[in-house]
Computed example of a mutant assay.
Amino acid sequence: MIRPVETIEMVDVWRRVIVGDEKSWVMFENGTCVILMEPEDDLAAQATEILREYGPVEAGSPAADFGTIDLEVDPGWVVYGHHNDVLNYVSPEEVEAPEDVVIGLLGRSKRDQDGHALTVVHVEDKRPDR
């Protein structure tokens, strides 16, 4: 779980990392970010439902798969899984060996924790009519 100061820092990271100023997104307590490509009325509830389905890791299933993206705007990596809009950030300080498998496993672990706890810590509402 990230502390309040870290939450503010993670919000800033996601603001820099997410491409497209018009995208609404929700962040959970371990830093998992769910981007809402078709935002509904209640962004937190919508993101929670997505993470409930696509967050928990099940060994041997697509939920255990992951990929990593080297960031250009920030040091670190984004880890994605079987839902393209459910993402995790891994900073260089979090890993001793910056290998894709180490980075991916850490990001996947954060997603799994958030997929079980489902605790929203930030909502970024970018809908034009709000």
Rank of each mutant, 00 (worst) to 15 (best):
M1P: 12
R3G: 08
P4Q: 07
P4R: 02
T7V: 15
I8M: 03
E9C: 02
M10K: 09
V11K: 12
V13D: 11
R16Q: 15
R16I: 07
R16S: 15
V17Y: 07
V19D: 14
V19C: 11
V19Q: 14
G20P: 01
G20Q: 02
G20H: 05
D21P: 03
D21M: 08
D21T: 02
E22H: 13
S24Q: 11
W25F: 14
M27V: 11
F28L: 14
E29F: 03
N30S: 08
N30M: 06
G31I: 12
G31K: 14
T32A: 06
C33F: 04
I35M: 12
L36Q: 03
L36Y: 01
E40K: 15
D41N: 08
D42F: 07
D42N: 13
L43M: 05
A44T: 01
A44N: 02
A45M: 15
A47L: 12
E49I: 07
L51S: 00
R52Q: 10
E53D: 09
Y54M: 14
Y54G: 03
G55R: 08
P56G: 05
V57P: 00
V57K: 14
V57T: 13
V57D: 04
G60K: 14
P62D: 01
P62K: 07
A63C: 10
A63L: 11
A64R: 14
D65Y: 04
D65R: 11
F66R: 09
G67M: 01
T68Q: 08
I69G: 00
I69Q: 14
D70I: 08
D70W: 02
D70P: 05
D70L: 10
L71W: 03
E72I: 11
V73T: 12
D74G: 00
P75L: 06
G76M: 11
G76C: 11
W77E: 08
V78L: 13
V78P: 07
V79L: 13
G81A: 12
H82P: 13
H82S: 14
N84C: 06
D85R: 01
V86Y: 01
L87H: 02
L87N: 02
L87C: 03
N88K: 01
N88Q: 15
Y89G: 07
Y89W: 11
V90S: 07
P92N: 07
P92Q: 09
E93P: 00
E93L: 09
E93T: 09
E94R: 15
V95Y: 09
V95Q: 12
P98N: 01
P98L: 11
D100G: 04
V101Q: 10
V102S: 07
V102D: 09
I103R: 13
G104E: 06
L105C: 07
G107F: 02
G107N: 01
R108G: 01
R108C: 04
R111E: 04
D112Q: 04
Q113L: 13
Q113P: 00
G115R: 01
H116P: 00
L118F: 06
L118I: 10
V121A: 06
V121T: 05
V121G: 04
H122E: 08
E124P: 00
K126S: 08
K126F: 01
D129Y: 12
R130G: 03
R130N: 08
